[in-house]
């Protein structure tokens, strides 16, 4: 564990808390992509299968259970409140996730991490590719609506920050731990890059106290 990884995990936990707080405080799931949340649940299921295979640390196991639990809890809450959005979710959450699923599966089958062709390893690789693009339905939705509640915006920012910190962690581990995972690094760069436009708007608008509106 190093400081970057710890900050990454904390940003990830913060993003989940912000999302749940947004739903609670506005009593609405308007502006939140159900598809993105469903993809994250699938990411955690396919990645954390190893929780049954080996033990890393109490921290590791607890966080895996936390991420799995909160992702399904979020889906449950969103489903319950599905009619509370001012705009019906199905008219705006229209990103075609089939392409993300098929693309991620194809990449995992062609380039499994460490070239180990086991079911668990292919699913692990799939989860990394899928996570790298899982935010797209959410960003697509944001672009269509053009504006968002501040908690939603903070949620997306914390989520983007999380993988950005992981990239720093991987650079650190390459030099100081003699450890490197090409799959993690490449997907992490893609994931962080997808947020780059969003980060810029966040900096320009939110940090300067203006309402979040896309130009």
């Amino acid at each position: 564990m190093n400081i970057f990884r710890f900050l990454a995990d904390m940003s990830h936990v913060l993003s989940i808390l912000l999302l749940l707080q947004k739903i609670r405080s506005s009593n609405s799931v308007a502006g939140i992509s159900f598809k993105t949340q469903a993809l994250y649940a699938l990411v955690f299921v396919t990645r954390y299968l190893d929780v049954f295979i080996y033990f890393v640390s109490i921290y590791n196991t607890a966080m895996k259970i936390l991420f799995l639990g909160t992702s399904f809890y979020t889906l449950h809450v969103m489903y319950k409140k599905r009619d509370s959005g001012t705009i019906a979710a199905n008219t705006i959450d229209t990103f075609r996730v089939e392409f993300l699923l098929i693309g991620s599966l194809a990449l995992a089958l062609i380039f499994p991490s460490e070239r180990i062709y086991s079911v668990t390893n292919i699913l692990w690789t799939f989860s990394l590719w899928l996570e790298s693009v899982a935010i797209l339905p959410q960003l697509f939705m944001l672009q269509r609506t053009g504006q968002a509640e501040s908690l939603t915006v903070h949620y997306i920012f914390a989520l983007g920050l999380y993988r950005g910190f992981y990239v720093l962690n991987w650079i650190y581990r390459y030099y100081f731990d003699n450890w490197f995972s090409l799959t993690s690094f490449v997907t992490g760069i893609i994931q962080t890059a997808l947020y780059s436009d969003f980060f810029w708007v966040y900096y320009q608008k939110v940090l300067k106290g203006k309402k979040f509106e896309l130009p």
Binding site: Y54, M63, E114, I116
Partner: peptide, 10 residues
């Protein structure tokens, strides 16, 4: 099935 390398990150 070949062994899975231990993955310690989340």
């Amino acid at each position: 099935e070949p062994p899975l390398p231990k993955k310690d990150e989340l």
